[in-house]
Simulated assay, not measured.
Amino acid sequence: MTGLLVQIHLIDGSLYNGTQAPDSLYKYGMGKYLDAFRKFNTDSAQFRKSMEYYTNTPDKLTAIYDNVDKRIKALSDSLNAEQAKERTRLLKKDSLKTDSIKKANLKHKTPAQKVDSVKQAKTKKAMDAKIDSIKKLKYRPKPNAVPIK
């Protein structure tokens, strides 16, 4: 009974996650349910009778659903682990691709370019020094001036 309930709940989940047009659950779900019943050598009438029995004995139904819960969690965990592996594989693949692109874009500087970059650095440093001195002058304390008579 546990295996059949796991299959039925998985089918329910797959049907309710898709688009739902009128009668689509019956149209697309009936075949899946019949396959599940066939797999466990039962039919819908026998399943209904079994559910009525277990509904009248809640202790047994609770035990069955504890096992159903464990199996579905195990399936979910294994699926999540596979998806995590796939994500890390894709991220690694993407990072290798960007690294090779970065390497291809790196060019060695010629001696003239090196001299230009040194000049630019010195010019920037000088400009920063001028800006700092202007800021200092602008915000310096003003003496208390006495007007001349």
Rank of each mutant, 00 (worst) to 15 (best):
T2A: 02
L5F: 03
V6H: 03
I8H: 12
I8S: 11
L10H: 05
G13C: 02
S14Q: 12
S14K: 13
L15M: 07
L15G: 03
Y16H: 13
N17S: 14
N17A: 11
G18I: 00
G18R: 12
T19I: 12
A21M: 11
A21T: 15
A21L: 13
Y26I: 06
K27C: 00
Y33A: 03
Y33H: 08
L34S: 04
D35K: 14
A36S: 07
A36H: 02
R38H: 08
R38E: 14
K39D: 04
F40E: 07
T42F: 02
S44T: 05
A45Q: 08
Q46A: 15
F47C: 02
S50G: 06
M51A: 01
Y53H: 05
Y53L: 06
Y53P: 00
Y54N: 06
N56M: 09
N56H: 08
T57P: 01
T57Y: 13
T57I: 12
T57H: 14
D59E: 07
D59C: 02
K60C: 07
K60D: 10
A63D: 01
N67C: 07
N67A: 12
N67Y: 07
N67Q: 15
K70V: 04
R71C: 04
R71M: 06
I72F: 00
S76Q: 05
D77S: 03
A81V: 01
A84H: 00
R87A: 10
R87Y: 13
T88I: 02
R89L: 10
R89E: 08
L90F: 00
L91T: 07
L91M: 13
K93S: 14
K93E: 15
D94W: 03
S95W: 12
T98L: 07
D99A: 12
D99N: 13
D99R: 09
S100H: 08
I101R: 06
I101S: 04
K103S: 08
K103F: 08
A104T: 11
N105E: 13
H108T: 11
H108Q: 14
K109C: 03
T110N: 02
T110S: 10
T110C: 04
P111Y: 09
A112W: 11
A112G: 09
A112K: 09
Q113H: 04
Q113R: 02
K114H: 09
V115T: 05
D116T: 06
S117M: 12
S117A: 14
K119S: 14
Q120V: 07
A121M: 14
A121F: 13
T123E: 13
T123Q: 14
K124P: 01
K125T: 12
A126E: 15
A126R: 15
D128E: 15
D128A: 13
D128K: 14
D128T: 07
A129W: 10
I131C: 04
D132G: 06
D132L: 10
S133C: 01
K136Y: 10
L137T: 10
K138G: 08
Y139P: 03
Y139M: 09
R140L: 05
R140C: 04
P141A: 10
P143I: 03
N144R: 06
V146I: 09
P147N: 12
I148W: 09
K149Q: 11
K149Y: 08
K149R: 11
